[in-house]
């Protein structure tokens, strides 16, 4: 039987470092889109709580601890990260395996917010977007998601087929910010 090897769409393109920002690939992990069935939102939240230690995320919220978590991923969806769904969760929600559907990268460093501000119209000032927050938003004209992992660390996600575009656009932004020569 053929054994399939998971591959990271950004592995050959990263890491990239310019100035005070670094872009790194994130190793592929479990990612499942979770959409509770009608009237089953509470049961789904309870099952999620058991699985990742946190309930259904409020709009714009989502945290990862030890690589696990549940992220706000749309008006009717959350993204389960780092763990496969339990039977309980599958009873109360439609789940779709998205593990190989996204290009996932981490942007970090003292210039990370300056870089981010060049690729997304999202308000990325610390007061508006801090740790524990997650946004579906425009990333360089791609429908993506950004999770704030730490004050200067962000996880960026776009559709897998757009991995090269993501790396290209973020790299250009990193070069532009670095060219300003600001010391952080």
């Amino acid at each position: 039987m053929v054994k399939l090897t998971p591959t990271d769409p950004c592995a050959d393109l990263l890491p990239v470092e310019h100035g005070h920002a670094v872009l790194r690939a994130v190793a592929p992990t479990d990612m499942w889109l979770v959409a509770p069935y009608n009237g089953k939102a509470k049961a789904a939240a309870k099952a999620a709580q058991k699985l990742v230690g946190q309930g259904w995320p409020d709009p714009g919220q989502g945290a990862l601890s030890d690589g696990r978590g549940l992220l706000f991923f749309g008006h009717a969806h959350a993204l389960l990260v780092g763990v496969a769904p339990s039977k309980d969760l599958m009873k109360s929600a439609a789940v779709t395996d998205q593990s190989d559907a996204w290009a996932v990268v981490d942007l970090s460093g003292d210039a990370a917010r300056d870089v981010l501000a060049r690729v997304t119209p999202l308000d990325v000032r610390p007061a508006a977007f801090g740790p524990g927050q997650c946004a579906r938003c425009d990333i360089a004209h791609m429908q993506g998601a950004i999770v704030c992992l730490a004050p200067q660390q962000f996880r960026l996600m776009v559709f897998r087929s757009m991995a090269k575009t993501l790396v290209h656009d973020v790299t250009v932004a990193m070069e532009s910010v670095a060219a300003l020569g600001k010391t952080a």
């Binding site: 714009g60 008006h75 119209p121 999202l122 946004a135 579906r136 938003c137």
Partner: peptide
């Protein structure tokens, strides 16, 4: 209503 004020291009 969910995401707050966002750029019109979204």
């Amino acid at each position: 209503p969910l995401c707050g004020a966002r750029d019109s291009r979204e």
